[in-house]
Design a protein around this nucleic acid. Structure first.
Lengths: 191, 191
DNA sequence: GAGTGACCAAAAATGAAATATAGTCATATA
DNA sequence: TATATGACTATATTTCATTTTTGGTCACTC
């Protein structure tokens, strides 16, 4: 068989969405980047949104894979959290798509980009939530609402890994995992 | 003397900025609301921005007053934090200006609204930062970077008091202070 | 029959004319 | 004569008709 045209399209679209965002990525451009006729895209995806969905689902799946690959049921919640966080922070490039979506939502309000981000956020939150529930059952975490706790962990992650650098120099990933431990796990109270 | 025209203007502008935002508040409207000729506004404020600055400074000062009024050097950092947080959460109406600014920045990107919000955020952050440093010196808090810690506390506050309700029913203010204690102070780690 | 790009309708960008707004100042008022 | 004012102006914003771009189709090619 000849080259896998579907993969060509998905790869080209991935790059384009991450580089230019949802709106600024045109089907003509994707076709040209993938060295494929525009009509060919529509034999695999019924519209632009479906193509975008596939890319987002891939990102989500990839992050799950990274997390699952690092997760070890025999280790403690903190240990797993630390190592997964660390691994995820290594993927700053992979974050580029999510970053671009966030930017686009912020300064253009593209609805499809917002939808994609929400889906990603939802996937991350429910992943964390399950791990939290497990840790509570194992008496590793204090009793708490897993949904609120997952939400807080995610927001803390965003604050340290992304928002902080809006007005300061970025924190090292070692620093971020360390702060995570201090603030959320051990707590600030002395003694 | 006749009625205090300056106060009339500031009060009218306060209401209008909180109700309609920066951009949608016109000087004509403020003049009409204050029952004052438009030219009169310019005898007190050299332009719209200066009028807005005065309103923001009043908000900042008012919040400081609330915080300082509740602060008691003899009590613990946690105790003070809790009570101040509680008091601030009571002022949901007073937050309306800040909320409106946040909305306006989010979906119109008005630069002056952003500037105002940043000023408010900066004031809050440096206020918290000083209290944190004091608490560290008193060995009430573990040693930590007061700037990052103030930032994290502020973000946690925003997450619980504002962002959470974007996709869930709002948390009671009792719940918010309780979660603050759990996550940041005592920490999630069991045992 | 898988792959294509010229083609079309719909959406978005453009820009010029119409409107609204910040800021001024000659005049009114007390 | 101090202060207060609103008609006025220059600038910024909105509107809207026109042009351009783009998502999606389909008759045709290889």
């Amino acid at each position: 068989m000849s080259v896998d045209r579907r993969k060509l399209i998905v790869d080209a679209a991935s790059k384009s969405f991450a580089l230019f965002g949802y709106k600024a990525t045109t089907m003509d451009q994707v076709a040209k980047l993938a060295n494929v006729g525009k009509g060919t895209i529509y034999t695999f995806f019924s519209n632009k949104e479906e193509l975008f969905d596939e890319i987002m689902n891939r990102l989500i799946q990839e992050m799950k894979l990274v997390a699952d690959g690092e997760y070890d049921a025999n280790r403690s919640f903190f240990d797993n959290l630390n190592r997964i966080l660390y691994k995820i922070l290594d993927f700053r490039e992979k974050h580029q798509l999510a970053m671009k979506m966030a930017h686009e939502v912020r300064d253009m309000g593209t609805p499809k980009a917002l939808e994609g981000l929400n889906k990603l956020e939802g996937a991350i939150l429910s992943y964390i939530q399950v791990k939290i529930q497990t840790a509570i059952d194992k008496r590793e975490l204090k009793i708490c609402d897993p949904e609120v706790t997952a939400f807080v962990m995610f927001k803390l992650y965003l604050a340290l890994a992304s928002e902080w650098q809006h007005s300061h120099s970025p924190l090292e990933k070692e620093k971020i995992t360390e702060l995570f431990q201090l603030y959320l796990m051990r707590g600030l109270a002395e003694g």
